[in-house]
Nucleic acid binder design. Structure first.
Lengths: 251, 251
DNA sequence: CGCACCGTTCGGTCCCGATCGAAATGTGCG
DNA sequence: CGCACATTTCGATCGGGACCGAACGGTGCG
C-alpha cells in the first residue's frame, strides 16, 4: 500500500519537463505558467497539463492574479525531495573523501527554500538554543501526555520560543514581533541531509536569511542556492555562533 | 542539467514493482532476488531487470552468496528518499492542525520487521538509555568507517550494552543471556522516519517485541505491521518509559 | 556427472503518458 | 464590444519501458 503511493509521487518527479519546472521553483519563487513552459522547453499546452497534475498532487500551489496564474512549491517537503534526489546523483555510491569542492561548499552554507541550511544553518540553530531564543521541548524526558494527541507531531516542533527570544533575536537584526505578525508560521524545522540536525525554517528562518543578506553577512553564490559567507559575516558568526566553516565540527 | 538527473533518479522510484522492492528493503535487510520478485509480484525475469537498473544507479548494493544474490539499500540516502516520498503522500498539502488520525497513529507505534518502531519504539529506546541498559558510544567523534559497502546494514552502532543491561532488561521480561545465545546480532538500530531517532532492532529488539506481546502490552492491529497498545501496556509503558500517547497503528 | 534451482539475457508484445496543433475559455484593455 | 494575450481542454500521434516466456550460465547437492 505504501509502494503504490511512493511510485505515483515519484512519477511526478520522473519527467524531464516537470523536473525542470520544479527545479526552477526550488528557491521559493512564484512563476507564471508561460514562464515555466519556457523553462521546461515545452509548449504551453504541455506545461499546463503538467502543472495541473502537480497541483492536484499538492506538490505545487497556484495563485491566480489577473490573467496570469502563478505557481510555487506547495511546501518544503517538495523542495526536500528534489534536494534529496539531486543528492543521490552527485556523489557516486558512497561519500568519498574528496567529494569535491562543490558538494562541500554546498554543505557549508546554502539556502533551503527560503532559509539558511547547511552547516551554517545548523550552527545558527545551535547558537539560538544556546542563547535561549529557542528551547527544546519534549525531546527527552518530558512527557507530552496532556497535549492532545492530534496536535504537534514530534518531528515538526521540537523547539519553542524562549522567554528571551525577542531580545536574543535583536542581535541578529530580526524583529520578532513583525515576523509573528506576518501571518506565516514562525517556527518550522527542516532536517538537513548533510548534517543530521534540525535547522530553522518558517517565518523566523526566512527573516534570519533576509537579515543576514541585508547586513552583508551572506551573499548569493554563483550557483543556485549557494550562499557565501563574507568576511563581515564570518566575523559576525564567529562571535555570535560557533561557525564551523572549513573544519567540520562533530554534528 | 540538474533536472535531467533528478528526473532519471526519480524514475527509478516511479515504478510500482521497483517501489515495492525498495520498500521491502527499507529496514536494512538483505533479500535474495527471488524474494524480491515475489514481493513485487513480478516474474524473476522482470525483477532481475529492475534490480540491475537499481544497482547500476547505486541505489542498491548486491552481494553474491552461493547461488543467491542478496540485495540491500546502498546507503541511507536511498532510504531517505523513499521516506520523504512516502511522507509527501500522507499529509495533504500543508501540515494542517488535524493532519489526521491516520498519519499520527502511524507514528505512534508500529512494528518494523520484527521489532517495535514509531514513537513507542523511540520512547523505549530512550528509556533503555536512561536506565543504563544501553550506553551511547562514539556518537560524535568517531570517524565513519572506511568505505566498506559490503558489510553491515546501514545504521551504525551508536549504542552498546551497559553493565547493568541484564538487570534492566529483566524488568521488560527479557532474558539477555538467551537473546545473546540465539546467535543473532543482539544490537542493531534503525533510523525511524517518523521520529528522527534510532530505535532498537536486532535480537534484542525482537526479544522486546516478543516479550511485550506475551505480556499483553501490545497486540497486532488490523493492518499489517500495526501494533496496538493495550490498557495494561499503557500502564506499563507509562511507568517504565515515558510513553507518548494514545492509540497506535502502523503500516 | 546430472539434476534442481537461482538468477540473468533475449526477443517480442502492449500500454501508458508525453507531446503537439487547434480550438475553447477567460481576463485585461481600449 | 472587440482585440490581444495567458491558459486550459481536446483529440491524435508516437516512443519508451514494463512485462512475460523461453533459453542460457552458474552453483549446490546427491
Amino acid at each position: 500500500m505504501w509502494d503504490a503511493q511512493v511510485a505515483s509521487v515519484a512519477a511526478l518527479f520522473a519527467d524531464r519537463a516537470r523536473a525542470r519546472m520544479l527545479v526552477a521553483l526550488i528557491d521559493g519563487r512564484s512563476l507564471p505558467a508561460s514562464r515555466l513552459a519556457a523553462e521546461a522547453g515545452v509548449t504551453p499546452a504541455t506545461a499546463s497539463s503538467h502543472l495541473g497534475r502537480l497541483v492536484e498532487a499538492h506538490l505545487l500551489a497556484v495563485e491566480s492574479s489577473g490573467r496570469h496564474r502563478f505557481y510555487r512549491l506547495a511546501d518544503e517537503r517538495a523542495a526536500r525531495v528534489i534536494e534529496d534526489l539531486a543528492a543521490m546523483t552527485d556523489l557516486p555510491p558512497i561519500t568519498s573523501l574528496r567529494d569535491g569542492t562543490r558538494a562541500n561548499r554546498l554543505r557549508t552554507a546554502r539556502s533551503c527554500y527560503d532559509h539558511i541550511a547547511g552547516r551554517l544553518g545548523v550552527a545558527i540553530m545551535r547558537a539560538l538554543v544556546a542563547d535561549g531564543v529557542l528551547v527544546p521541548v519534549g525531546h527527552a524526558g518530558i512527557a507530552r501526555r496532556p497535549a492532545d494527541p492530534l496536535s504537534a507531531p514530534l518531528p515538526d516542533r521540537p523547539y519553542a520560543l524562549g522567554s528571551k527570544a525577542a531580545d536574543g533575536l535583536a542581535a541578529w537584526g530580526v524583529d520578532l514581533r513583525s515576523v509573528e505578525a506576518a501571518g506565516r508560521p514562525t517556527l518550522r524545522f527542516c532536517m538537513d541531509w548533510t548534517e543530521q540536525c534540525h535547522h530553522l525554517g518558517g517565518g523566523l528562518g526566512a527573516a534570519l536569511l533576509t537579515s543576514a543578506r541585508g547586513a552583508g553577512w551572506l551573499v548569493d553564490g554563483p550557483r543556485r542556492r549557494e550562499l557565501v559567507v563574507t568576511d563581515a559575516g564570518r566575523e559576525f558568526f564567529d562571535r555570535v555562533a560557533a561557525q564551523p566553516d572549513s573544519a567540520a565540527s562533530g554534528s
